[in-house]
């Protein structure tokens, strides 16, 4: 079990990458590309796991996880967290755009100025 350190490092590294990803401003094109690449990677891993179930067990043993199912569970958790972060980021972005749209509508519907000198909210 002394090679458990490998899976620990791998999981912590994955979470650290998410943290960095959260702080970076990031361009739209790069994010979209990264999302699609990780989606393809996920499919590839899933296919391999279906075709060679024994392989998952061997990888699990190599990185210090008891069974292949445990490794899959860890992988699922990492993917889930990553997906949640990406979704909330997209949400914030959409909220900002929605705000601009709603404000434009509000100002377009607002009555004109009467021009009685200084102005307040």
């Amino acid at each position: 079990m002394d090679n458990q350190i490998i899976i620990k490092i791998a999981l912590i590294a994955a979470l650290a990458i998410f943290a960095v990803f959260l702080m970076l401003p990031g361009s739209g094109a790069r994010h979209l590309a990264l999302r699609r690449l990780s989606m393809i990677g996920l499919f590839a891993v899933a296919v391999v796991a279906v075709v060679f179930p024994q392989l998952i067990n061997e990888i699990a043993n190599a990185v210090g996880v008891g069974r292949g199912t445990d490794l899959l569970l860890y992988g699922l958790i990492v993917v889930f967290i990553g997906n949640s972060l990406a979704a909330s980021r997209r949400n914030r972005h959409m909220e900002r755009e929605l705000t601009q749209l709603a404000r434009a509508v509000a100002l377009a519907d607002a009555p004109g100025h009467t021009g009685r000198g200084s102005e307040r909210r």
Partner: peptide, 11 residues
């Protein structure tokens, strides 16, 4: 909205 009034100086 208030800034649209060009005569408004203070808000």
């Amino acid at each position: 909205y208030a800034m649209r009034d060009p005569s408004a100086e203070f808000f």
